[in-house]
Design a protein around this nucleic acid. Structure first.
Length: 591
RNA sequence: GGUCCCUUAGUUCAAUGGAUAGAACGGAAGUUUCCUAAACUUUAAAUACAGGUUCGAUUCCUGUAGGGACCA
């Protein structure tokens, strides 16, 4: 049983014995003791005084004595106001370390066979990925790893918005001015190549607008009057009519985009088990609309539009199908959700989508629940806030800084520069050095994004945000490399330290921290929040560096102590590596 | 007009309703004959405002101000 539960249960038992009251374990609050006080864990007893009818101090004193007596793992305790600080015995912690070390799968939980579908990324195919996608991809991938660690059966899926007016814009511009150029002939990455034609389209609209008299003030409305825009609209119709030439062009251009995307996915180390395409799902959802009407859950409005009334749930009436019978996003999302449930029979479906869609996903979940689909209870919108530049929202026209590939190239460049400055690559082959830059650069970027709680917006300043000191990915990577250096020098795997006595303060703290790892993984999964893991592993690394600085490992006073410290180092390295893996970040053997 | 989200140090982030609100960067001052100084140590610096609930509020509730998003 996990330590916190042992202590909570102990408190419950004591209250049963002393006062005959059945206390719920949830009412017992237990924290790691603040470092300015002596102790490992602290029980906060204020809330228990109502039952004990005694002062906080007396209640804590009683609990301390009884816990010491009953559990056998409490070495000593002290009481400050209503806080009971428990120090566990050195034996307990040494055994705990031994237990953790012996468990190769420490921090991962047995398979529970719960099927989870995790959708993330969801790009449009008319332009390259930008910094917002980066946050999405890193969050999505990490969430998948965390859920897998807690035993869930995760299928990661992507959805490509590959049809409609936007891709048609790129197609029209390319058709007019492309001269059969290709990514290969121009040396431009596929998604950027297509994105450039999308930009070109915008430029042409601007030019053509100058020749249009009496245009409306609204820019978007005015744009619709230009010849090239009309061409794009025709292109959509032709596509829907399966016009062979249009389909061929569409396939060709999307093909280029996918090539480009896959390259970026590979660099970021993210993957999907299944791809969905809007072109294949955009007609879905009509059946479910029918079902809703039959069940009287959805209603037909006077104008013919199908709506669901969500006013009892504090939302509005929401249109699910337009009065002319055409679909909107919510229509196909309903259909796609149903399709996935047929395919996977999942208990949970997680959508990693920006918080602009909060309302949309509330509607989606509610509508499916109202249809009586129980699996809809398992829908979770992992909503994340935008990534903004210091001057506000990144606009694609601000260019370079918002582009995912440029951003990645930039962090790799900085990593290379900094590593060379420090002279850290002696004895590395060119290949190894390059690999190291990649590891460190991506580590910095990924950690920067994942350390922040998803619902908080990130202010990203390309000049300053990528750092290698302090609370950063490279700091943690460096700590791992340091540990590996110690292990290499130590040679053998140590044993027989468990008879040691008299743990040093920082050694204790380190073991406590290692012992918390499994709780952190669980919490991150429950809260759908990788930043829990990110902040944990930083604290672990920081603590290790203190340990490393304060105490000698290889030159410890006795052989036994050396063995123990090597083992503690080794285990810290293992947990750092595991935690970073959950974030999708590699750790180097040396740097 | 309605709904939702955010506001903590100069800056970027932490804090299941618990102790003196933690870190990092930046500022100031230090540590290397010793296992990797991308490290470690010391130091100054913050809960937007006003109420309420509570033994106890950064956290929960109400209102105000500022920032952002969505719905029509």
């Amino acid at each position: 049983m996990i330590l916190e539960e042992v202590l909570k249960q102990g408190v419950v038992d004591i209250f049963k014995e002393e006062y005959g009251v059945d206390l719920s374990p949830q009412l017992v609050t237990i924290n790691i003791t603040k470092k300015e006080h002596e102790g490992d864990y602290t029980i906060v007893v204020f809330s228990l005084t109502k039952i004990s009818k005694k002062s906080p101090e007396q209640t804590a004193e009683l609990l301390g004595n009884k816990l010491k007596e009953k559990t056998g793992i409490v070495g000593k305790f002290n009481v400050i106001k209503g806080f009971l600080n428990l120090s566990l015995t050195d034996d307990y912690w040494l055994n705990r370390l031994k237990e953790i070390s012996a468990n190769v799968t420490y921090g991962t939980f047995p398979a529970n066979h719960k099927k989870v579908v995790l959708e993330y990324c969801g790009p449009n195919t008319n332009k390259p990925l930008h910094i917002g996608h980066v946050r999405n991809m890193l969050l999505g991938f990490s969430m998948g790893e965390i859920l897998k660690a807690t035993g869930e059966d995760v299928t990661k899926v992507n959805i490509y918005n590959d049809r409609g007016i936007n891709i048609s814009k790129s197609m029209v511009a390319y058709k007019r001015y492309g001269n059969n150029s290709t990514p290969q002939s121009t040396g431009v990455k596929g998604d950027h190549f297509v994105g450039d034609w999308y930009v070109k389209f915008g430029e042409v609209v601007k030019q053509e607008l100058e020749n249009i008299p009496n245009k409306p003030d609204d820019k978007d409305e005015a744009a619709k009057l230009t010849p090239i825009f009309k061409e794009a609209q025709e292109m959509v119709l032709k596509w829907e009519a399966d016009d062979p030439e249009t389909i061929a062009l569409w396939k060709q251009m999307n093909g280029w985009v996918y090539e480009g995307f896959h390259e970026t996915f590979k660099v970021l180390g993210i993957d999907f088990q299944k791809d969905y395409y809007e072109s294949e799902t955009y007609k879905l959802g009509k059946d479910i609309i029918e079902e809703g009407l039959r069940k009287n859950v959805f209603k037909k409005r006077a104008d013919g539009a199908v709506i669901v009334d969500l006013t009892p749930d504090g939302l509005d009436e929401k249109v699910l199908l337009r009065s002319d019978g055409t679909s909107i996003y919510i229509t196909q999302d309903l259909g796609t959700a149903e399709l996935r449930h047929k395919e996977f029979g999942m208990e949970k479906m997680i959508y990693v989508v920006a918080n602009e869609q909060d309302y949309h996903f509330k509607v989606l979940k509610l509508a499916l629940q109202k249809l009586g689909k129980q699996w809809a209870d398992g829908i979770y919108h992992l909503s994340y806030a935008l990534v903004e530049s210091p001057t506000g929202r990144f606009k694609s026209r601000e260019g370079k800084t918002a582009d995912a590939d440029d951003l990645i190239a930039e962090v790799l460049r900085i990593a290379e520069e900094r590593t060379k400055e420090l002279g850290k690559i002696e004895g590395f082959t060119d290949e190894q050095a390059k690999e190291l830059y990649r590891t460190i650069g991506l580590g910095a970027l990924k950690y920067f994004v994942l350390r922040v709680n998803p619902y908080k917006k990130i202010i990203f300043n390309p000049e300053e945000s990528i750092d290698f000191h302090g609370h950063t990915g490279p700091f943690i990577q460096y700590t791992h490399a340091r540990i590996r250096a110690v292990i290499r020098k130590a040679g053998v795997t140590p044993t027989g330290f468990e008879t040691l006595s008299g743990l040093h303060e920082v050694e204790r703290e380190l073991i406590i921290q290692l012992s918390e790892y499994e709780n952190v993984v669980k919490a991150a999964a429950e809260k759908y929040d990788p930043s829990e893991v990110a902040n944990y592993v930083y604290n672990l690394a920081k603590l290790y560096n203190k340990f490393y600085h304060d105490l000698s490992i290889l030159n410890a006073e006795t052989e036994q102590l050396k063995n123990f410290r090597v083992a503690l180092s080794n285990q810290t390295g293992i947990v750092i590596k595991k935690a970073m893996k959950l974030l999708g970040i590699d750790v180097p053997e040396r740097m």
